[in-house]
């Protein structure tokens, strides 16, 4: 008789997840988990060494991503994932440092840090999940909330203009800027692979449904209907001028890779300048005493 050995079927992304922390906290229909799946698949595809990868998150629903990834992971303070990641990356330049956070965390409370990290061209890979709302706290207005969406703090509809995240990030100096939605899982995965190979400050904006708070409160249907919206209204335009990719409520969504350029990153500029000025006296930028 032949013994039948049953090998358990393991999802290929499992080695990158802290399975001992499942189930996660995200709501049914939330898109954050989809982005994590794409991220893990991108790690597999790019053959990234998980031991040389650190993920830094801020606070919020997307801020919980760090805690579910089985890599060195840091759940920091609200808005400060980027400056934490800056210190981490500069202290250990051999690390691939990914910042994974939400639109409110990165562009409202953390907006100043984002533009300065982009200006300096710190070698950080930022994944910004944009659900148009502060979800963890119950659905308040975010800097991305489109007019005239209703939130708990804009009960009569928002009347603030929303930030165009790719435009802002490109203007500040990022070397790579792309946008996808959680409908575009293959494109998003490819984009993450590409970003991980890039040097400098990179950002991918991922539109994601928040069926519990954004879609429901605005009577936009459930997560499936949001997928249909993403599918029908997304227009892929690689290289589109970022000034033209602003979002409107339920309007067209321009997706694609908008920026892919090269310029020296912060450490490179620092090393070059100091070596030029100090010659043999320059002792390097290694911080390990």
């Amino acid at each position: 008789m032949t013994a039948v050995v049953e090998t358990p079927v393991i999802n290929p992304v499992e080695p990158f997840l802290r399975m001992d922390r499942m189930p996660h906290i995200w709501c049914p229909g939330c898109g954050i988990g989809t982005t994590v799946n794409c991220f893990a698949r991108a790690l597999i595809e790019s053959k990234a060494d998980p031991e040389k990868l650190a993920v830094v998150s801020g606070i919020g629903c997307t801020g919980r991503v760090a805690g579910y990834l089985h890599v060195d992971s840091f759940h920091t303070t609200h808005g400060r994932a980027i400056p934490f990641a800056t210190g981490l990356k500069l202290a250990n330049p051999s690390l691939q440092v990914v910042v994974y956070s939400g639109d409110g965390d990165l562009f409202a409370i953390g907006g100043n840090h984002l533009i300065h990290a982009a200006r300096r061209n710190i070698d950080l890979k930022v994944i910004c999940v944009n659900n148009f709302i502060y979800a963890m706290t119950g659905g308040q207005t975010a800097p991305t909330t489109p007019e005239p969406a209703t939130t708990t703090t804009a009960p009569y509809g928002s009347y603030e203009p929303a930030f165009n995240l790719p435009y802002l990030t490109e203007s500040a100096g990022a070397t790579y800027v792309a946008r996808w939605t959680t409908y575009h899982v293959r494109q998003l995965t490819r984009s993450i692979v590409e970003m991980l190979q890039k040097k400098g400050f990179c950002l991918i904006e991922v539109l994601s449904p928040c069926p519990t708070l954004y879609q429901r409160r605005n009577r936009l249907g459930d997560a499936l209907e949001t997928m249909k919206y993403y599918k029908e209204r997304s227009k892929t335009r690689h290289g589109a001028p970022t000034s033209e990719v602003g979002l409107t409520m339920q309007g067209d969504i321009v997706v694609g890779k908008f920026v892919d350029r090269d310029r020296p990153d912060y450490l490179e500029s620092m090393r070059r300048r100091l070596a030029e000025q100090l010659g043999d006296k320059f002792a390097g930028v290694g911080v390990l005493a």
Partner: peptide, 30 residues
Amino acid sequence: PTVGGMFIQMEDELAASIAILGAVWGGAKA
């Protein structure tokens, strides 16, 4: 630069005070 290491002037004190914490988890004394 002549000892080996680095200084970074951050955009505000919130950034400075957490950049050092990132550096510590990267192995530095900061």
